[in-house]
């Protein structure tokens, strides 16, 4: 079954690499979108204004309750009916980013809330405004607390980017499926695909555990 694995692998590699680039592109775009939107949800959540906090909580719960695939279908097939035409790539990263914004919001919120109450007292007793306290005292510390779970979500996001293949984004898994179908070399192709995903996610895992250890030591 694995006869000539390496020669076949060399043949498939360039095409699969196109898939890798697409996977990286869609993951990065979705990550940026999820992070920004997640920050917005988290800020609303800790704003202290009940209607904003409640609204943010409701929206993120709704997002978390719907499968990513359904969100993708919605953006790709339903939005055009409402006059909003999105390319597969756009629908893909927006849908993925939207879904992950809910998880990122949770990561940021728990980071913000994990900052010691004494820090807020110290900032307040210096006469800092709420915004200044957020910017100079809370967020820098919340950021460090949030980094390990944030990088874990990055790994999940990377793998979930394969779900965009359902709306015709030709990312790594989809590229693999296409080559496998035309070459009848499923074993070689999907082994390669799996290895490539690992090459992408292992460094992220290393980063995550590095950050985790660094944070556990509890400095700075």
């Amino acid at each position: 079954m694995f006869d000539g694995f390496f020669s076949d692998a060399l043949r498939f590699l360039p095409i699969l690499l196109q898939g890798v680039w697409m996977t990286i592109a869609i993951t990065l775009c979705a990550l940026a979108f999820a992070s920004l939107l997640g920050l917005v949800w988290a800020f609303l959540r800790v704003s202290g204004v009940p209607i904003l906090a409640g609204g943010s909580k409701t929206i993120t719960n709704l997002i978390r309750g719907v499968p990513i695939i359904v969100i993708l279908f919605y953006l790709y097939f339903v939005m055009p009916e409402m006059g909003v035409q999105l390319s597969a790539f756009q629908a893909g990263f927006i849908g993925l980013g939207l879904a992950y914004s809910a998880y990122m919001a949770e990561v940021f919120r728990s980071g913000i809330e994990a900052v010691d109450a004494g820090q807020l007292e110290a900032a307040n007793s210096l006469g800092m405004s709420r915004t200044l306290m957020m910017r100079r005292v809370v967020l820098p510390q919340a950021f460090k607390i949030a980094l390990p779970p944030y990088s874990n979500n990055m790994i999940l996001l990377l793998k979930d980017s394969s779900q965009t293949s359902i709306i015709t984004v030709v990312e790594l898994s989809m590229q693999g499926k296409l080559i496998a179908a035309s070459s009848f070399q499923s074993a070689t192709v999907f082994t390669l695909v799996a290895l490539m995903y690992l090459c992408l996610s292992l460094p992220l895992m290393g980063l995550a555990s590095l950050l985790e250890r660094k944070y556990k030591r509890g400095t700075r």
Binding site: G118, Q119, L126, G127, M128, R136, V137, P140, Q141, R220
Partner: peptide
């Protein structure tokens, strides 16, 4: 905020900003 600027507080548990150096804490 005006009052807090004019009356400082020192806490039992110090509450220094852990992400800033000693000097940065003082000039913040």
């Amino acid at each position: 905020r005006e009052i807090r600027r004019s009356v400082s507080m020192v806490f039992q548990r110090f509450n220094l900003f852990p992400h800033r150096t000693v000097l940065e804490n003082v000039i913040e």
